[in-house]
Design a protein around this nucleic acid. Sequence first.
RNA 1: GGGCGCUUGGCUCAGUGGUAGAGCAUCGCCUUCACACGGCGGGGGUCAGUGGUUCGAAUCCACUAGCGCCCACCA
Length: 863
Amino acid sequence: MSDAIDLTRPIQVPEKPALEGLEKKWSGRWDADGTYRFDGTKPRGTIYSIDTPPPTVSGSLHVGHVFSFTHTDIVARYQRMRGREVFYPMGWDDNGLPTERRVQNYYGVRCDPSLPYDSGFTPPEKPPKHPISISRPNFVELCTRLTVEDEKAFEHLWRHLGLSVDWTRTYQTIDRRAQRVSQAAFLRLLKRGHAYQLEAPTLWDVDFRTAVAQAELEDREQPGAYHRVRFRRPDAGFVEIETTRPELIPACVALVAHPEDERYRPLFGSEMLTPLFGVRVPVKPHPLADPEKGSGIAMICTFGDLADVTWWRELSLPVRAVILPNGTFKPLTWGTAGWESIDAAGAQQAYDQLVGTPSNKARAKVLELLRESGDLVGEPRPITHAVKFYEKGDRPLEIVTSRQWFIKTMEFRDALLARGRELTWHPEYMRTRYENWVNGLAGDWCISRQRFFGVPFPVWYPVRADGSLDYDRPLLPDESRLPLDPSTDVPEGYAAGQRDQPNGFTGDPDVMDTWATSSLTPQIAGGWLDDPDLFERVFPMDVRPQAHDIIRTWLFSTVLRSHLEHDVLPWRHAAISGFVLDPDRKKMSKSKGNVVTPMALLEEHGSDGVRYWAASGRPGTDTAFDPGQMKVGRRLATKLLNASKFALLQTEPRGPVTAPVDRGMLQNLAGLVRFATEKLEDYDYTAALDQIEKSFWTFCDDYIELVKSRRYGDHGPEPAASANAALLTALSTYLRLFAPYLPFATEEVWSWWQLGSVHRAPWPLPAELLAVSGDSDDSRVFREAEHLLGEIRRQKSLHGWKVKTPVHVVFEGDKEKLAIVRLVEHDIRAAVTAVSLTFRSGPSFAVIVEAAEVAAPTPEPRA
RNA sequence: GGGCGCUUGGCUCAGUGGUAGAGCAUCGCCUUCACACGGCGGGGGUCAGUGGUUCGAAUCCACUAGCGCCCACCA
């Protein structure tokens, strides 16, 4: 007899199995036992490494996190059971703007980098009405303090959810290791010429007063208006342009029309005068100008939008910048170089009314002045148009000229597209989004931010004798000094006293964009600089799990950094999860106020229940938030406990699996194992679970009911032995199949009768089932038994008879069919409480069910 | 404006060429020797629309509509 079941330990089944408390019990045990501890001595080929998304800790986790992290965990658990050593770290994204904002609100403080560090500062108990200004080091301290608290709460939730993370391997995007990796990678880019600094027009958020990257843009539909404005020629005549931003007329540097546009061709090369300010601006041809738009001729301002930047660059136009980093109009003197006017006094008078106001106020004022001067043609025509915003911002972006750091992307477009094709995407069509993005790149990646809580640029600049900065000869540290902060650390060859002094040095004040750090998560988690042995084993990683909204940011930038630094893809697979939608089919988000607290959900439905719902979201598919599915999952977990209890209630006698129906059941199960394995290999955990679950309910409702009486010994010891062995084999298999999805219920049952953790047990193989069931193909017998059971139940139900009403059953059919029925006749007879079974030959197969007792009242058959 | 995805019973979704499926909900029946967080059974859909390919289309092709998302230099 081939008995794969180990029953060396005493079986202990609780009187009343329950799900309550399993999360606490098992998450604690797994931690104590190091169940998910990564063994860094395993050879590269056996390792499965995951580039876990570091959630932003400056807020709360929401259902979407639970959803997508569960997907990753299912894959991780599956791979672990397949014998792979799973590298599954956890990171916390705590650097950057979201944390700054949270700290400002939480403590009621504001960062003022000009203030000195106050070592005795403690924030007030309650945030004051007016924020307290504190130094950058003090501010960073508070950021660190708060994120540590947040991270504890996050870890608690993740453990409760059952993520099989190795909790000894966590990192923060602001910790020393992340800073060191970010800074070293930056210096290497710089040395290779892949990073550079440039003073150029940059997308700028006027509230946060920082540059933002293309990837952080968001279009929002905004009300606006076309204003038709007249530009006069110095001699005679005029043209009319249309603009949505008349307040930028003082910043106008040219007019532009399409080269083929007959209306404006005669004007090319001539000059026009700007209204109100009387500045001579040239009329230029450019193919980008659309004759269909507005009046067909546009004004170019420095800078109203990205099209202006393109024209300005390609037509080599001068800069007339009017907007300050805070979004208001800056004071300037008309009649000086660059601001020549045919009427300097008039221009000055008009412009002075704009100084200090933000765009919207300036627009109203300019309109007023245009009306007075008669240069506004007709009334503004209201429109709705898309305006670019910083995704976290509240006011439209401006374009401000400033000095920023960039990483080159444009010249690697083809290589990055090739990397995208090399990567296996789940689902496949998500590659298109990546390609869209790469093809649409408009400029290199701006990575500097004028913020405080982030990784500083490890760079200083020499201060010249006249106090100006020499940006062309940055002072760079040796990599061994990293991480460092140029605002407190001193460059080689200088003394601290020389900071900000003539002939001294100054630190670069900026910090890196969050994505500049998180684009290095494989390097940070994998120990690139401080654990080369680990890095060798886990990099490139196997999978990057993430949501589709950050393909253009996180996925793209990680591919870029790995390409530039290692000339390789950072991972083989990208597993893209969808969003959680609320019942109105809208993305669940905090701003819409429809977020459900994850911990409350986990407590109400059980972690296994919530995970079951999450598993219904296949890769790439947005999924409705559905407590109903969580209830179903919880019911499934409960069923698993109870069916297991039944199987374990009696394990003797136990012997070879000889009954055809038992063999057939196990052979079917082998097919299920094959299917589920195939699907899980392809990251389709949803399809795998779907079939595992269906099979399991059939197992419970049909197979268990069929063999119940036999396993209790009603037909003798040998048939009972067969049933018991089959039941235990099936139980072991189902537990392992369900383990990635329902880690708590399966572990609980496993502990009743097996040694060790089910999560370290080997994934089932078809061969192990076929070894027990034998080679003869009996799966048809099992399916036939199921079918007969269903048919007899149906007829009894239609007659209105109870399940246990005794009946006579007649099987009519051909020899072959009847032979199969005879193989299961004892099980069928017991399962449907038949007092007699009759077999008779007939042309086609039929099952006839008749009441056995005349005394039994026979209700009317229902219509 | 370009692209991607979706559209199947009241709800949530499977199903990629061969007589429409599941769960939930609903209706009827059945309790206590695994489980009432249970069991058995029933009813319910012209598979968004139009046209095409095919012996045969929810499934392949084209177009249309609606929804969602991504992208776009949007004067």
